[in-house]
């Protein structure tokens, strides 16, 4: 290919061109010769430039900031690992970590089973109106968390929110001060998370279920296995890769929860709903403790990293990593 380009260039320059020793190739010719080898690097370059500037550097910088005391202006004061000790002893951080753990646990043990149940129901052969059902249960996923949080302000209003009105009308229960007491407020956040994420996780399980060959069930049924045995011995084991993926997604999602507590209760009452992301934002942008906030975020990072590694090992994601 490169040769033909040179020849064409040569013919355009007159007869004496042939006597001149070969000149350095033009850039275009050089490119044509190496294109195939270099192209993939150029194609992935935009990601890696942005990754280096807007992710790798900031993460390294977060580590650096976490070793300093800094208000965001003026000089940074080196404090070594002191911030880590302080954050780990900070009662507010304990609250944030415990609340985030609650959110993660609810996601794993409430959302995932519920989503699996919905997926099983929607996957059974004779259920009608599947498109309607799938669409309806999925709708919350497309809404902004802010919109969702705002929607639920009037549902969980302490006196005549829809929830209290419903409880009073149906069960005669006196109004509950949902957002005013620590336990109820945390429960409200969890209810909203369940509302927002169940349809999303359901889709993954549904796709997983549809990938299980029907013949497996038919063969087992011939052998006399009941529905419970089918579920336990075929469905669950074959859903393992999906479950692993979902577990990682849910955990990373739970570690990022921010909008609902921020809008509904501003982390309160007290710090009953404060998440780690709320804590980092509050320390950084309301209290201007940038080093301290960076420390907390780095601890979160280390924790998420460890847990996802354990999950990945445990479920063996990556072993079937073949396109």
């Amino acid at each position: 290919m490169a040769v033909s380009v040179d020849e064409r260039a040569g013919t355009g320059r007159g007869a004496d061109r042939a006597l001149v020793p070969p000149r350095p190739r033009s850039l275009g010719a050089w490119w044509r010769r190496h294109e195939r080898r270099l192209a993939p690097y150029l194609f992935v370059a935009p990601f890696f430039v942005l990754f280096a500037v807007f992710m790798a550097y900031p993460v390294a910088n977060a580590l650096w900031l976490s070793l300093h005391e800094w208000t965001g202006l003026g000089a940074m004061e080196w404090v070594g690992w002191d911030n880590y000790g302080e954050v780990l002893r900070d009662a507010s951080f304990h609250h944030a970590a415990a609340n985030t753990a609650w959110y993660a646990a609810a996601s794993l043990f409430v959302i995932c089973p519920l989503a699996l149940l919905l997926a099983l129901a929607l996957n059974s052969r004779r259920v009608a109106a599947k498109d309607l059902l799938r669409t309806g249960y999925f709708i919350p996923v497309v809404l902004s968390p802010v919109v969702i949080a705002l929607m639920f302000t009037i549902i969980f209003d302490q006196e005549f929110g829809l929830m209290n009105a419903g409880l009073r009308g149906l069960l005669g229960i006196r109004p509950i001060n949902w957002l005013g007491s620590p336990e109820w407020a945390r429960l409200v956040i969890i209810i909203i998370l369940v509302w927002r994420w169940t349809g999303y996780i359901m889709i993954y399980f549904l796709a997983g279920l549809q990938n299980i060959p029907r013949e497996l069930y038919e063969a087992a049924q011939l052998d006399g296995a009941g529905s419970w045995r089918l579920f336990w011995n075929i469905t669950l084991p074959l859903l393992r890769p999906v479950t692993a993926f979902v577990a990682v997604v849910v955990l990373i999602g739970a570690s990022q929860i921010f909008e609902e507590p921020y809008i509904l209760t501003n982390g309160g009452p007290g710090e009953a709903t404060l998440s780690i992301a709320n804590y980092v934002q509050r320390e950084g942008f309301e209290r201007l403790n940038f080093g301290y906030a960076a420390t907390a975020s780095f601890i979160l990072f280390a924790f998420v990293f460890l847990v996802t590694q354990v999950q990945i090992r445990f479920f063996g994601i990556g072993r079937e990593q073949e396109g």
């Binding site: 992710m55 550097y57 990022q256 980092v280 950084g284 975020s297």
Partner: peptide
């Protein structure tokens, strides 16, 4: 370097945004 580079792409999915918040804002 393809495998390494692709693993970096995947690994970057595990970084919670809270980690970037402060240093990215500063930058």
């Amino acid at each position: 370097g393809k495998t390494l580079l692709f693993n970096i792409v995947l690994g970057s999915l595990l970084v919670p945004f809270a980690v970037l918040l402060i240093p990215l804002f500063v930058m």
